[in-house]
Design a protein around this nucleic acid. Sequence first.
DNA 1: GTAGGGTTAG
Length: 328
Amino acid sequence: MRSVGRRGNAFSLAILLKPCCTLAHARQLHANVVAEGHLQDALLATSLMRSYMNCGAAESVCKVFDEMLVKDTVAWNVLITCYARNKRTKDTLKLFDEMRSESEAEPDEVTCILLLQACTSLGALDFGEQIWEYAMEHGYGCELKVRNSLITMYTRCGCVQKAYEVFCGTPRKSVVTWSAMISGLAANGFGKDAISAFEEMSKSGVAPDAQTFTGVLSACSHSGLVDEGFRFFDMMRYEYQMMPNVRHYGCIVDLMGRACLLDEAYMLVVKEMRVAPDATIWRTLLGACRIYGHVDLGEKVISHLIELKAQQAGDYVLLLNTYAANDT
DNA sequence: GTAGGGTTAG
């Protein structure tokens, strides 16, 4: 590892903080930053926070934050991101109040996005609406990414109508806006509306991507729209030349399972899929076997699940051996 | 070369 010279300025230190740096690298640079007296350089300190965050060193992220005398908005946002990634969702929300009461840094649109995401995973509707109110009051109400996050928050909280109102009030909808609405409709049982939205999107000239298809395929499986599901699956493969991923196959297997096409679903997974099936796909199929009392196939599926788990365990052993080899 | 929008199923 190259150490930073005595003359190294804050800028050159920031350059050295590559996003993929190791924990040891981050600690070395942290020491250099302190030694050179650059900890009060906000860009450098937040770069360091990000590096620690990417190494999973949440405590060090907090430490750098605490050491900063002037905590700017980005520093708060990195801290919030770090909390959210560590599933400390309730604490994430507390940071919003803390930020507003004891800091000179104001929450910006990124803060709003991060907090709306936290509300989505918590199902915290009231808090989410407070964030939205703040966003509107401070001129972030038209930001597309904020609106997209709000649509997702509303649909995850079951407020499809409110999500739809925000969606309709959004003038330049991106593929993300459309996909959020389509997935939201799908998850709340409005399969046909999700399909209509997909068609409306195509008419408006926005091209679907892989996640849009995940949304519309899940709409079909949720609402038992088997023929439509296959039509969209063909559309994605042949018209849009997209390679289905494990989630797309997950939807198709779910769709076939609901249509009692159990053996066909099994053949699709073992013969046709070009991607490795995950435990979710097998569990989906197992669920369908249970519903229809298809015991023989259920046993086969269970053996695949066991095999998958054994393989995962093997991967961990391999990983452990790698660490052991590096330590000596 | 600081943080940030939408993904299946159970």
